[in-house]
């Protein structure tokens, strides 16, 4: 039986700050990006959030990505991508 929680995947500067590619964060109820960032700052240091460019997405392999607002609710079982720079041309 799988545990309740969200899977976090880090890319680019987020990954360098976290030192890991992926992290499972136990979570019984809904959470938000803002709450997740606070937990990650507690774990990886206060500077953690400043390493990314602010593009955090909910990802579904079938539906593709959807950008998340800081206070949007995230359900247990979700996969969240912390993306590095959006590459330009």
């Amino acid at each position: 039986m799988s545990r309740n929680g969200v899977t976090l995947k880090f890319y680019g500067p987020w990954q360098r700050a976290a030192g890991v590619e992926e992290l499972f964060m136990p979570q019984d109820g809904v959470t938000t990006v803002r709450c997740l960032l606070k937990k990650l700052e507690a774990r990886f240091g206060e500077e953690f959030s400043s390493h990314g460019e602010g593009l955090v997405c909910l990802y579904d392999s079938g539906k593709g990505p959807r950008a998340l607002d800081l206070d949007e609710e995230i359900l247990p079982g979700s996969t969240i991508l912390f993306l590095g720079i959006v590459e330009s041309g």
Partner: peptide, 16 residues
């Protein structure tokens, strides 16, 4: 698909 999600959402102009 995962690493390119930013490009999927905003295209290259996401880098402006």
């Amino acid at each position: 698909k995962e690493k390119g999600a930013g490009m999927t959402l905003y295209g290259t102009a996401g880098g402006m």
